[in-house]
C-alpha cells in the first residue's frame, strides 16, 4: 500500500505518524538519537547536519515545550530556523493552509514542522509540498504526535533495554490523545507484547482494542505487573461535564498515586508527556519519585528530534 512517509527506496521523507512505519525506521531514529546523546555527553553539542537548510516551525496550535525542543534541536543541527506562531485556524485567518505553505516554499523552505488542531493536516501538507521538502508532524488534532512517541520509545529502551518482554500501561484520556495513538503504534511495531489502555468508557475511543491493546477500566487491575506506566494529560476543559464529573473523582479512580503504583513491577518506570496536572492524573509523590523518568523524556526529546530531522534531510529525491 502507498505510504506517504517513505520514498521508493524505503527512506523516510516525512514523519507524519508512527503508524505503518517499519521497525527498521524506528530503530534507525532511536540509534541516531543515541549517537547525539553520546556526543552530547562527550561535550559535542553542535552538528552540521542541517547547515544551509531552512526549517519552518508552523504552530497553528499553542505549544511551548514541543516548539522549544524542536528549535533547540534545529539549532544544534545548524539549521536556519524560522518559527511562525499562527494560532488561528487556517480558514479563519483568510489565507488557506496550502497558500501559507506555498508562500513559505517560495521563500526557500526545506522542511516544515507542523502542529495543527485538525487531525490529518500534516498529511494534506505533505501531499502538496514540492518533492524534497520534508514535513514533520509536531502534533495533529487527536491523531498523532510521532516525535513524542519516539522520545518515549527512546526513554523506554534506555531504561528497559528491549521491548519484547515488556508490559506497558497507558492511563487516562485515550480518546483525545494523539500521544497515546502514536505510542500504541510504535510499541506494537517494536514488538511490545502487551500494551494496556486504562480509562473510563467516556475517555476510550470505540474499537480501541483493534489497535492491538488490552482495555482496562479498573486502574488497579490494569497496573498489575506492568513495567512501564504512562500517564496522559487530562485537558482542563474535559474535567467537568459529560465526559467526567470532576477532576477529583478522576484522580481518585484513575490518578497515579504511590499506593496504586505499588501494584506495578517494583522497577516500573513512570512517564508523562507533559505538561502535568499534579493531583489530577498524577500525584506529586509519583511525578517526583524515584521511578519517575519524566525529565529524562524531555532531555531525550531533543536528541530524538535531531535524529528525525537529520534522517529526513538525507532522503534521496
Amino acid at each position: 500500500m502507498y505510504n506517504p512517509q517513505l520514498n521508493s527506496h524505503g527512506e523516510l521523507i516525512h514523519l507524519l505518524s508512527t503508524e505503518s512505519l517499519p521497525a527498521r525506521i524506528l530503530h534507525q531514529i532511536l540509534d541516531r538519537a543515541a549517537g547525539y546523546v553520546a556526543a552530547g555527553d562527550a561535550g559535542e553539542k553542535k552538528h552540521s547536519d542541517l547547515a544551509g537548510k531552512s526549517v519552518f516551525n508552523l504552530f497553528f496550535e499553542n505549544s511551548t515545550r514541543t516548539r522549544t525542543t524542536f528549535e533547540i534541536a534545529q539549532k544544534r543541527l545548524s539549521a536556519d530556523v524560522h518559527s511562525l506562531n499562527i494560532q488561528a485556524s487556517s480558514t479563519a485567518k483568510g489565507e488557506t493552509l496550502l497558500d501559507t505553505i506555498h508562500n513559505l516554499e517560495a521563500m526557500g523552505a526545506d522542511m516544515f514542522v507542523v502542529r495543527h488542531a485538525e487531525s490529518g493536516a500534516p498529511f494534506l501538507i505533505a501531499k502538496h509540498v514540492r518533492p524534497g521538502v520534508a514535513v514533520v508532524n509536531a502534533g495533529d488534532g487527536r491523531h498523532a504526535h510521532p516525535t513524542q512517541a519516539l522520545l518515549d520509545m527512546y526513554t523506554i529502551r534506555h531504561f528497559k533495554g528491549d521491548f519484547r518482554n515488556l508490559t506497558v500501561a497507558i492511563v487516562g484520556d485515550i480518546l483525545h490523545s494523539r500521544v497515546a495513538r502514536s505510542q500504541i503504534h510504535a510499541l506494537t511495531t517494536l514488538g511490545c507484547p502487551e500494551v494496556r489502555v486504562i480509562g473510563p468508557k467516556t475517555l476510550l475511543p470505540r474499537d480501541v482494542e483493534q489497535l492491538g491493546v488490552r482495555v482496562f477500566h479498573d486502574l488497579k487491575e490494569g497496573l498489575k505487573g506492568v513495567d512501564v506506566v504512562i500517564a496522559l494529560r487530562l485537558q482542563n476543559e474535559r474535567m467537568n461535564g459529560a465526559l467526567l464529573p470532576s477532576a477529583n473523582e478522576f484522580n481518585q479512580f484513575y490518578g497515579l498515586s504511590r499506593e496504586k503504583l505499588a501494584l506495578a513491577q517494583p522497577d516500573a518506570i513512570v512517564m508523562h508527556p507533559g505538561p502535568m496536572n499534579r493531583g489530577v492524573e498524577i500525584d506529586s509523590a509519583v511525578a517526583d519519585g524515584k521511578q519517575s523518568v519524566i525529565l529524562d523524556q524531555v532531555t531525550f526529546g531533543i536528541a530524538v528530534r535531531m535524529a528525525v530531522m537529520s534522517i529526513l534531510s538525507e532522503a534521496r529525491a
Binding site: S119, G120, D140, H143, L211
Partner: peptide, 15 residues
Amino acid sequence: HDGQVATRLGLPAIP
C-alpha cells in the same frame, strides 16, 4: 463514523 477508522485517525466521531 464512530468506528475503528475514526479511532485510528483521531477524527471526532458521529456514532
